[in-house]
Design a protein around this nucleic acid. Structure first.
Lengths: 150, 150
DNA sequence: ATGGTATTGCGACTCATTCTCATTCGTATT
DNA sequence: AATACGAATGAGAATGAGTCGCAATACCAT
């Protein structure tokens, strides 16, 4: 659960575009939103914002620590955003259906810190993405294979 | 140490452009090479190859398992390639000097497999990038801070 | 040498993202 | 409430990595 975000508290003045983008993000916490997703959401449900503003506002949000930016796709390098969860998590991406599961593993987290320390690195950030085929798609695959063999 | 690569063994005919790109990669195992790095290397040391061919050949190499593609940069999403190491490794990137350290941690590796299993995922791949400031840059930072304070 | 397939060179193209700059908005101050 | 000044926005052009289409060329088996 993500706490209600107040722009002023994050050092951002409350403008109409910023509130709109924030609304779009809050309405879609279940997904990771690309700039285009935000753009289309606002076009349909709210009022249109130019893409340049969507990008700008998302960048401002990222700087203010309101959202996090990721790029999951190994091929197409499209960026997506999500409201920042106070507790960090990693991602597991289904390469078939593009669904994203979030997970947190304290063991890996602490191991990363150890590794960084050993190498004399001052760790500021990290990203761990697991790619694979989700339970649902594994099943679908198995079924379609059966169908073909018949 | 990476074994000498034979294109034919990888199912690729030995053409001049492919050999040139391979040579460029083998001559620069210390760095991760962008398509542009390869392009410039060949322009200077060998014979020019059009960018489209560089990209194409690198893509063929990736498919054949000769190189691996990564995108380290959190901001600019530029892709880089490296000759594929038979044993997988992860990356630690210095956000100051852009240097990349490679590391391998069996504990994290096996934990990833466990996590995937628990979530019903069939794991095909993963990427773990640690971002931070390397030992060298930490020192430089400390020094320049001292200078400023004087 | 010949023919057919695979590969290349070239430029045009796509698409996400960033930039520019004139206009408008937000807000602190009269 | 008017003013003023910096911050934010809108619109569209620009950028830059990467891809595509297709004619020309290279590779290889016969």
């Amino acid at each position: 659960m993500i706490a209600k975000i107040n722009l002023k508290e994050q050092g951002l003045t409350e403008t109409t575009p910023r509130l709109a983008v924030l609304k779009a993000m809050e309405a879609n916490t279940a997904q990771h939103m690309s700039a285009d997703d935000v753009y289309r959401y606002l076009l349909e449900r709210d009022r249109p914002l130019p893409m340049s503003t969507v990008y700008r506002v998302l960048a401002q949000f990222e700087q203010a620590g309101i959202v996090e930016r990721h790029s999951f796709d190994a091929e197409r390098t499209k960026q997506v955003y999500e409201l920042k969860d106070p507790e960090h998590h990693d991602h597991m991406i289904c390469i078939k259906c593009r669904s994203v599961h979030e997970f947190l593993d304290p063991q890996i987290e602490s191991r990363q810190i150890e590794i960084a320390e050993n190498l004399g690195f001052s760790l500021t950030d990290h990203s761990l993405n697991l790619y694979g085929i989700c339970a649902g798609c594994v099943q679908k695959d198995a079924q379609s294979e059966k169908t073909i063999k018949q």
